[in-house]
Structures are given as C-alpha cells and as structure tokens.
Simulated scan of single mutants.
Amino acid sequence: MNRTRTNDRFTRTRNGSAESGRGGSRFGSSARSRFAGSSRSGGYGRRSAAPQGEFELPRTITPALPAVVGFADLDMPGALLGALSSQGVTVPFPIQAATLPNSLAGRDVLGRGRTGSGKTLAFGLALLARTAGRRAEPRQPLGLVLVTGKVAAGNVYVDGMEVGGATEASLKDRLTLAAEGVVTVVAIVDADTGALAEAPDFLARGFVHDDATFEPVIPVIEKTLATAAEEGVGDARQLEQLLARAVANWAFRTYRRQPLIIPVVIDA
C-alpha cells in the first residue's frame, strides 16, 4: 500500500524506493508548497505572519467613542482643565483627542505613536482624572505606568496635577514613602528649660502604628532635648534635626525600617 506525504516532497512505494514529487526534484516547487497549506481554522497550514517589525492588532469589539475637538469637551476635573489652560494647552493632539474619551470612560486603549505625538499626556491625563481625590494606600498604588528603558521615568512621573519634570530627589523620596512610610513628630518644647512641655504627638502613614507604638521613643526624645539644652542648642531648626535623627535611629533599631521623619518643634 502506497503512502504519500501531504507536502508531496516524495512518494514512498511498497518496495521502499523514493520517487520524485511533482516538481521533479526533492526541493523543487513542492518544497515551496510546505507553507502554502490551508488556513489555521481549516487544517495544518501555518498562520500568515505579520510584516516584519509589526504585530497583529487585537480585534476591536466595542466601537470607539468619537474624538473631541478641545480638552474642554472632556469630562475631566476643573483643576486639571485649569492647569492645562494656564499653560496654553487647549487643543489635544490627534492621539489625545482619539484616546482620552475612551480611557476616561474606563475602556482599555491601545495607542501607538511616534516620539512627540503626545502619548504621555494621552494616558497621563486619564490617570490624573480617574484618580483625582483618591488616596493610595501603602503598597497599593492607584495607577501603574510601565516604562521602557529608552524613556526616563521622570518624563512620565505624575505629581499632583502635573506630568513629567520629576527630579531624581523627588523620585527617591516617593520610593522611600512607598516602601518605608512617613512619621511626623510634633514636640512642644518649653522655651525656658528646653524640655518637653507635654507628650509629643505622632502621625504615621505606611508605618506600624497603634496606641503603644511610639511610647518607647518618648524617653529618647526627652534625652535628646536634655542633651541639647545642656549644650545650649535652642534653635527650633537645629532641634528638629536632632529629633529627626533620634527617631530615625530608634525606628531602624526597633523595626528595621527607615521611614521619612518630619519633625515639628513648637516653642511654648
């Protein structure tokens, strides 16, 4: 019984000999037909490849919302529209006009454009608008921007009502806040003695905090202020620096954390 390969490269006969295919050669026209099979849905043929350098776009199921003419036509917070208007930005670029109505409505958007086409504001404005008035919790961001290695993170950093222009220092502070938390210490100091006039107040975000968390650090603060008084240090700014260092060292020794310490010294 004869057995024939589907690509007709050769036909194997009952006696084991191999005969050439229709192309007259093992690598003739039949070899080219290897990739000319049926479609993916119809059999064993390969799916046609997209042009080099491109990728296959996903199929759009929901029709896109119509593009807008001006930023004022978008449902964005007044403060955000005011910030744009104050900088003379009133007419969106094409990619912004096309994508913002959809992203503001909570739809998934895929946009591609050349450098300078306005992609950053296209997603940045939607991120600002949809998170306006909300507050992120530690390790639970409200938005996430994935940036390739070719783009500096500061160019797409969102801070308040602005996009871009972030410095390395501000990025470092934000990373510290997200990972370690922030602790504000308010100390009322007797101007005559340099000692605490009353127990200090603590406000913590993203840091271990309950009624008893900061009780152990109060003696540390009292000792720091006593030493400063003995050395004649009475300037509020200098006292704040001493308190910040003392509380930071205590937090690291106790919790192995390095929160941002914001000291406030008030003369009584």
Rank of each mutant, 00 (worst) to 15 (best):
R5A: 11
R5M: 08
R5T: 09
F10D: 12
R12S: 02
R12A: 08
R14D: 15
N15P: 05
S17T: 15
S17V: 13
G24M: 11
G24W: 08
G24E: 09
R26F: 15
G28L: 05
S30D: 15
A31T: 05
R32A: 07
R32Q: 10
R32W: 08
F35C: 04
F35T: 14
R40I: 14
G45R: 03
R46D: 13
R46Q: 12
G53Q: 04
P58Q: 03
R59M: 09
R59S: 11
I61Y: 04
L74W: 02
G78Q: 13
L81F: 08
V89Y: 09
T90E: 15
A98N: 07
L100T: 11
L104T: 05
A105Q: 08
R107H: 13
R107F: 09
V109E: 07
V109L: 06
G111K: 06
R112W: 01
G113E: 04
G113N: 06
T115P: 08
G118H: 05
K119N: 02
T120M: 06
T120D: 03
L121S: 06
A122T: 01
G124N: 01
R130D: 03
G133Y: 12
G133M: 11
R134E: 14
R134L: 15
R135P: 00
P138D: 05
R139Q: 12
R139S: 10
Q140I: 05
L142E: 13
T148H: 11
T148D: 12
V151L: 15
V151A: 04
N155G: 00
V158L: 15
D159E: 15
M161E: 13
M161R: 10
V163D: 03
G164D: 00
G165I: 07
T176F: 01
T176E: 10
A178W: 04
A179M: 08
G181A: 07
V185K: 01
A191P: 04
L196Q: 09
D201P: 00
L203F: 03
V208R: 13
H209I: 00
A212W: 06
T213V: 06
V217R: 05
I221C: 00
T224A: 14
T224Y: 02
L225V: 11
L225P: 06
A228F: 00
A229W: 02
G232L: 04
V233K: 10
V233H: 03
D235V: 01
Q238E: 14
R245T: 11
A246F: 03
A246Q: 03
A248M: 05
F252N: 12
Q258M: 11
Q258S: 11
I261C: 01
I262Q: 13
V265F: 10
D267H: 04
A268H: 10
A268N: 14
A268E: 12
